[in-house]
Amino acid sequence: MSQLGLAELEAVYDALAAAINQVGTEQESLFLTKLVLLLANQLGDQTQIEQAITTALRDL
């Protein structure tokens, strides 16, 4: 699995923050759910997605 370099990760970080601010609280969950579905489809690996869900559920 490829990993992002620091510069790329920072760019994604900024873009995601900007998008969340742009959609506003009401549509934030919908936006994030859409994003996950799009990325999941691009990743094309059910196990990796389920592992990511588990990881994201941790330490909330």
């Binding site: 919908l30 859409k34 579905l37 799009l38």
Partner: peptide, 17 residues
Amino acid sequence: RLLRDAVLSLSLTQAFV
């Protein structure tokens, strides 16, 4: 509901859903 709404929204342009 959230997943269904996300699929509705994506369905306008994304064939995979």
